[in-house]
Design a protein around this nucleic acid. Structure first.
Lengths: 195, 195
DNA sequence: CCGGCATCTAGTCATTGACAAGTTCAGGCG
DNA sequence: CGCCTGAACTTGTCAATGACTAGATGCCGG
């Protein structure tokens, strides 16, 4: 049975295999359930193999976060306006729950990692661009607050969604669509915006 | 031989001591850094003492979450209107970061724990009351969405705050006050009041 | 053919969570 | 007073894990 599938040494792309397995575990059972040895077993390699690619457990999570920010930046880039960028934010969280969760838990990864910083800078830039086309509210102070508000709204929705807190609040409804109308409710209609 | 300070057996309130130590660790280094043995060492008891009060590591975190929801419900109860309830939401997160973080990570605790469920129900009720005094927007569907929106806004702000993502967006500014004006920006009609 | 190098293996150690069994203490009851 | 029951805590132990070290393996260029 040890045919060409397992070519022993030089696995081919062990790094990716480990990463994918890690994402699977994190999405299912959370980052706490992550075990390097378990991942090694899944990949059919020795218990120390992952360490060569990621150094650490923290190193693995750092790689996850970095990849997450990169994908995140790409996901945000395509959106035409602020609202769709928010939708993209939510969609990313729903599509890449493991990445998302690790990204926003700084104590899980090494925050000074160069790759991570670069990817995060890209994502931040994408977010800023999105906020740029907010209707000019007033003074610059309010603009900044409005940006934080938009960010908070999308992030809160995404976070609650992943934590399962919204499951009964919107039974079987499509999260993206829900957020879209929710954002319309707030950001478009002037006058009684919040109503 | 051991002086009266440490009355050996029957520590007095070991449960609370362990809980407080746990909260300290979680707030500082995150839930992943939590070690029952470490907590035992801090409290000056044997390595198995915590298990008697919390059964498990998960049991300890469940207790943290339950306590968190109880405190949360109390914190929300005092607020006069929706906006102030949001402020209370943010304040709770800032004041009880460890509780907050554990509360919204279901894979950390036992979600079927009776105490947890009871406390969470109280908190949920307090949240619902807050949403109830939203201006009636239109149909019930929109009302529900508006509630989710308010919740998302507060939760997102609180979460981003705790993850440190807002640190440079609001340098040295008081988070509560920032959220208050932010919420005013969005939820009050046209008067984008004092920022 | 050979040497360097990244990749992976094998072995080891301290730490941890979980469990089992024993010990200490307080309070109730005869 | 003496016993006894149960809660609180200790001691001992085991498997699993993260991290480290040294060594084996195979690819690639010269």
């Amino acid at each position: 049975m040890t045919s060409e599938r397992e070519r022993a040494y030089h696995h081919g792309d062990l790094r990716r295999v480990i990463l994918d397995a890690a994402l699977d575990v994190i999405a299912t059972n959370g980052p706490g359930a992550l075990s390097l040895r378990d991942l090694a077993r899944r990949a059919g390699v020795s218990h120390a193999a992952p360490a060569h690619h990621f150094k650490d457990r923290t190193g693995l999570l750092t790689a996850v976060a970095a990849e997450g920010y990169a994908l995140f930046a790409d996901a945000l880039a395509g959106a035409p306006d602020l609202r769709e960028r928010g939708v993209a934010y939510v969609r990313f969280a729903a599509t890449h729950p493991a990445h998302f969760r690790v990204m926003f838990q700084p104590d899980l990864h090494r925050t000074d990692d160069p790759d991570l910083l670069a990817a995060r800078a890209r994502a931040t830039e994408a977010l800023r661009e999105g906020v740029a086309d907010l209707p000019p509210a007033g003074r610059g102070e309010d603009d900044r607050l409005a940006g934080v508000a938009a960010w908070s709204l999308a992030h809160g929705f995404a976070t609650l969604l992943l934590s399962g807190a919204l499951t009964d609040a919107m039974e079987g409804r499509d999260p993206e669509e829900a957020f879209r109308s929710l954002a319309g409710l707030i950001f478009t209609a002037e006058g009684r915006g919040g109503g």
